[in-house]
Nucleic acid binder design. Structure first.
Length: 418
DNA sequence: AACAAAATCAACCGCCAAAGG
DNA sequence: TCCTTTGGCGGTTGATTTTGT
């Protein structure tokens, strides 16, 4: 069973690569390409096995690799994709240009996994941890089955789309020439996909959103009810791994149908809940002003992370332009971090929280939304190149979210994808 | 300053599936 | 159809670095 190790031959070096070895490998590949990895080491004068050379090249020496700290966008993308795909690092890496699967895997294991655990989120299921005795076994296994099903579905689709993109890139670019020189290939692919699936409902697919967000930034143009609904649902979807999201054809929102309702899972955990999120158009969250302790804070990584990962601990309902969040535990500490797109014109209503049971509503303000005048920066952010613009982490965060919301507000994406 | 523990991450290992003879 | 080769993937290891005492 299995094949014998490729480095069986004695005398082949193992362990860390020296700069000299790196140079030899780079020089050879730049001149001749890698060709057969098995034959490469001898030709390049390296005492290494082909597998080791391939790994060294693909993970560290390739010129198109981005190294260094992961941005907030990248972290969030990894977490969300991991919730969908599990430990399919290559599939996740495919959505993070210039990052290798090995690097993402390491980063997950050393940073993100621990962070989620600290936040009370099970890094495997991406759900709030429940009591060992409290959770129903059948329910958990159902969740796991759904998650697995969803992961398989998404993985297969991702791989197929990636292949389609590769294979059709030239063809797509050629065909684009007649209609638009700037339209991303992605859109054409989406149109093809849509045409192949005429019955596909106008669903909001988180992965499509993310994929598109890398290529198709658009400034906010106008708001309408449908867009707001889409935005709400998109947002809810981003925050949810609810059973209804088993496949990309799941439908959280259908423009034109009212009311649009999104039910998020209810948590029974007895520990502190961190529940997310809201901005509103006026930068004030009026509905919270009743008895809530509202505090103005800066948007931090962990605020967003906590909110994104813990939002599913609530029951949330979307009615037209209103989001109702019902917190179904009146006896626990609940920290509510609420963020919403700045284009939301109406309100967010929180129910089930009051001052007398140690609940805190953490209101995160979107200080200024001049998105249309910051398109260039947005583009840089969306392209994962925050270093191109002088932007603080807070601004970075804001732009990340704006880019997501812009995406779902974008009429183009609405017509071709959703 | 010295040591231990923890964290990090480059690299390896074994398995699998596709390709080709 | 079978067998071998190859590249790719995910899990794991262990050397190195960082942090804590």
């Amino acid at each position: 069973m299995g094949r014998s190790p490729c480095c069986e031959k004695v005398g082949l070096k193992k362990g860390p690569w020296t700069p000299e070895e790196d140079q030899k490998l780079i020089a050879y590949i730049e001149e001749f390409g890698h060709g057969s990895w098995r034959a490469l080491p001898v030709k390049a004068g390296l005492q290494r096995c082909g597998k080791s050379c391939r790994l060294r090249w693909t993970n560290y020496l390739r010129p198109d690799i981005k190294r260094g700290k992961f941005s907030l966008q990248e972290e969030q993308t990894i977490i969300q994709l991991h919730a969908l795909l599990g430990n399919r690092w290559s599939a996740i890496a495919a959505q993070l240009p210039k990052r290798t699967d090995n690097e993402i895997k390491n980063y997950w294991n050393t940073h993100l996994k621990k962070r989620l655990t600290r936040m009370g989120i099970d890094p495997t299921t991406h759900k709030p941890k429940t009591d060992a005795l409290g959770g129903s076994g059948s329910g958990q296994s159902k969740d796991a089955a759904n998650l697995s099903h969803m992961a398989q579905w998404e993985s297969a689709r991702l791989e197929a789309e990636a292949r389609l993109v590769r294979e059709s890139k030239l063809q797509v670019q050629n065909s684009l020439g007649s209609c638009s020189n700037t339209q991303p290939a992605r859109l054409v692919l989406n149109k093809i996909t849509t045409q192949q699936q005429p019955s596909l409902p106008p669903c909001l697919d988180i992965l499509k959103a993310w994929q598109s967000s890398w290529t198709k930034p658009q400034p906010l143009k106008e708001n309408n009810n449908n867009n707001n609904k889409i935005m709400h649902s998109m947002y809810a979807m981003m925050l949810s791994t609810h059973d209804s999201l088993e496949s990309p054809t799941s439908t959280l929102c259908f423009p034109g149908t009212t009311p649009t309702t999104t039910m998020l899972p209810i948590s029974n955990n007895n520990t502190t809940n961190n529940i997310g999120l809201l901005f509103n158009e006026t930068n004030m969250v009026n509905p919270l002003s009743t008895t809530m302790d509202t505090t103005m804070v800066n948007l931090q990584d962990d605020d967003i992370m906590a909110a994104v990962e813990a939002f599913r601990a609530t029951t949330s309902t979307v009615y037209d332009n209103n989001i109702n969040i019902n917190i179904n535990n009146n006896d626990n500490n609940s920290n509510v971090v609420v963020v919403a797109p700045s284009s939301l014109s109406n309100s967010v209503v929180l129910e089930g929280l009051s001052n007398d049971d140690n609940n805190n509503a953490l209101v995160v303000y979107d200080s200024n939304d001049n998105l249309s005048t910051e398109e260039a920066e947005n583009l840089a952010i969306i392209n994962g190149d925050a270093s191109l613009c002088n932007m603080s982490l807070e601004e970075n965060n804001k732009h990340y979210w704006n880019s997501i919301f812009n995406l779902v507000n974008d009429p183009l994406s609405g017509s071709s994808v959703f």
